[in-house]
Amino acid sequence: MSLQPRREYHIVVLGAGGVGKSCLTAQFVQNVWIESYDPTIEDSYRKQIEVDGRQCILEILDTAGTEQFTAMRELYMKQGQGFLLVFSITSMSSLQELAELREQIIRIKDDENIPLVIVGNKSDLEEDRVVSRARAFQISQLWGNAPYYETSARRRANVDEVFIDLCRQIIRKDMHRTQVRDQESGSGGRGGRTSRGGHRSRRVRRRDKCVIL
C-alpha cells in the first residue's frame, strides 16, 4: 500500500465570500513562475505534491464566487475527501459561518472525523484582527482538534503547509481504513480515531509555534 503510486485526492475549500480563499487556492495551485493564472482550463485546480515521500495529485474544489448558490454546496462537499475551512482573521462572522459548513460536511460525509483544517487567512492584516488566536484554538479543540493555521495568501505564508497537512490527514485516514479493512475488525475504528486525535493536537501545537513566530 505504501508503494501505491500517485493518488488523487479531492480537497474542498470552503468559507464565506471575501475571506480570500480563492487567493489561497490560486497561490497554492500556481507555480511561482506562472505569470498569469487561467482558471478556465481543466487543470486549473490540480496540483501534484509530495507528502511524506508520496506523490499525490490534489484536485481542489473551490466554491469561490458561488457562495450564494447555497444549494450547490452539497455537490462540492460530496466530492471532497478533505476540507479546508477558511475564515478571515478580520471577520468574526466569517468564522461563525464555518460552523454551519462543518455541520453540513459531517452530515453529508456521515463522518465526524473527516480530514479538515481550519485556516485563518489574512494573517498579514494583523492590525485588523478581530478573531483572536485563542478563540480560533478554542474552535479547533471543539472540532476534534482540527489543525488550525494562520495563513497569508497574499504573502504566500503557510499556504503549502495547509494543503500538505490536509493531504497528510487524508492519506492517514486512507491507510487506516485499509488497515481496518485488512484486520476485518469492527471496533478498530473508534480507537484509531481517538489516538489520531491526540496526534493531531500535538501537530497543531507544533504548527502553531511556526505560525506565531
Binding site: S22, T25, A26, Y37, D38, P39, A64, G65, F69
Partner: peptide, 15 residues
C-alpha cells in the same frame, strides 16, 4: 452562471 462567477473570482484574485 456559477462557472463564470468562479472563473471571474479566480482571475481577479489569482492575478
Amino acid at each position: 452562471v456559477g462557472i463564470y462567477l468562479t472563473d471571474l473570482t479566480f482571475v481577479d484574485h489569482g492575478n
